[in-house]
Write a protein that binds this DNA or RNA. Structure first.
Lengths: 142, 142
DNA sequence: AATAATTTGTTTGTAAACAAACAATAAATG
DNA sequence: CATTTATTGTTTGTTTACAAACAAATTATT
């Protein structure tokens, strides 16, 4: 009477679904506190440009984990708002080098502490030990 | 000489960034195996309609974790492909009740086992115990 | 029954996300 | 040097995602 138990596909148990939901929750938390100023990706791009001083679009995409076609739009909108500026790379005719404008620098400084609160709020359901475990395993999946 | 250590905001350590990256990886795995047939959300919606037999758009959104405005588009495209059909709810003039067409049922049956492989591939970097831990903690964050 | 509040679904607008195809430049290879 | 290969960035098209404002139908309240 033994046999293979019929597997039921439950969407809410799938890792993909749960990752998506966790992402949604984080995005909502982000929007709640910084939504009037920046999107998560705009923030990420500003942080990364700030880290590196000057970066090409392609490098920026690799640093922030974005497709080149996606970088395009994010960078354009930040430029339109005067948060970043570019100069042509003297050594490579294809590239332009992006850096933070003063407005951009100010905005990042203003929002960095908020960003830490966002991370804290996102991880609130986990205690300190769980957080470490979760982040360690999550890193393996990314 | 003690003092608060200056906190450095590293994007790649933030839970939001890692969740996003893990999601990206999962989406890529999904696309690799089912990308020519369905998107992750189309698949999720089909599964959920199949679970419930008949559902309204709003309920569908809650079941699959989607905004009503997002459900719109997903449902429209599935209908255009003849994978789902609707009838007006006789008891509520606002609703329409959606169900799988025969084509939709067939497609789900064909793809369900692939979906399990996708989950498996996504979780590959974790061993069995890590998977259980990860899913437990991830659930707390969604 | 009349009014208020809720629920269901739509529309518009903005922002990612990425495949696919492409042009231009640079680097490697013969 | 000439050709091939790789890199950088763009454009187009499709899909998801959600805020915000809205119309229509239902339910609750007075």
């Amino acid at each position: 009477m033994t046999g293979k138990k019929k597997s039921v596909y439950r969407l809410e148990d799938q890792v993909g679904h749960l990752l998506r939901r966790a992402n949604q929750r984080h995005a909502a938390i982000f929007f709640d506190s910084l939504g009037q100023k920046l999107t998560p990706m705009q923030f990420a791009v500003l942080v990364k440009i700030g880290d590196e001083d000057e970066v090409s679009q392609n490098l920026l995409g690799r640093l922030a984990g974005m497709d080149p076609a996606t970088v395009q739009g994010v960078v354009r909108r930040l430029r339109e708002r005067g948060l970043i500026t570019a100069r042509p790379d003297p050594e490579d005719g294809r590239r332009s080098l992006w850096s933070l404008s003063n407005t951009g620098k100010t905005l990042i400084q203003e929002t960095l502490s908020e960003a830490e609160v966002i991370t804290e709020r996102t991880l609130k359901p986990l205690d300190s030990k769980e957080r470490a475990t979760f982040l360690r395993l999550l890193r393996k999946l990314s």
